[in-house]
């Protein structure tokens, strides 16, 4: 128990620390191109961390979506908007204070949380055990995540697909769905 705990903890702490360092670098940099690249690194690191936390499906999704599509879309936006962030005029003191106070309150709240990875964590007690026991009997699907996603919580997933679809419609309405390039002279007229 202790040996495996130490092993998990070392990888976990290392990856999480890298993740936080990347996030702080993102907050400090003003070159947006570097920010987007670091956001890709951030996604890849979080995918690795998710894989060590046994969430293989989520890690897979995060690696494909976060490090792949998200970076491409952010770069596409940068090509349309510019790559340098201007220095903010107001002082960062007030937002920093708000964040520190909120963070302190949240950390005070975590002190009562059950220990990380404990098997008797309240989150593991009822519903999860039920799903793990019922899935092989009722659906015969070995991947419990797929079974819950598509069968037990099918309504939820239908809603999520509809949200993705709606967001795509909104983007197409905003940016133009025809796929034709507007004439180059338009920008000059505005």
């Amino acid at each position: 128990m202790t040996a495996s705990l130490i092993g998990i903890a070392v990888i976990d702490i290392l990856l999480f620390t890298f993740l936080v360092i990347t996030a702080i670098a993102i907050a400090r940099l003003r070159n947006l191109f570097a920010v987007v690249m670091l956001a890709g690194v951030f996604s890849l690191l979080s995918a690795a961390l998710l894989a060590t936390l046994d969430a293989v499906d989520v890690a897979f999704t995060e690696a494909a979506v976060g490090a792949g599509i998200s970076t491409v879309l952010l770069l596409g936006t940068l090509a349309l908007t510019g790559r340098e962030e201007k220095k903010p005029r107001h002082s960062p003191f007030l937002p920093l204070l708000v964040c520190l106070v909120t963070g302190a309150a949240l950390i005070y709240g975590t002190l009562d949380m059950p220990s990380f990875g404990a098997a008797n964590n309240p989150a593991q007690e009822h519903l999860a055990r039920e799903y793990l026991e019922r899935t092989p009997v009722e659906t015969g699907v070995p991947n419990v995540v797929t079974a819950i996603l598509a069968s037990y919580r099918g309504f939820d997933t239908l809603g999520e697909v509809l949200v993705v679809f709606t967001a795509a419609i909104a983007v197409l309405l905003l940016l133009g769905a025809s796929g034709k390039r507007p004439s180059a002279g338009r920008r000059g007229e505005e």
Partner: peptide, 19 residues
Amino acid sequence: VAAVMIALFVAFARHNPPL
């Protein structure tokens, strides 16, 4: 999801001429 992701990419990449 595949169609939405392709459509999103095309919408961004084929927008106004880049800067």
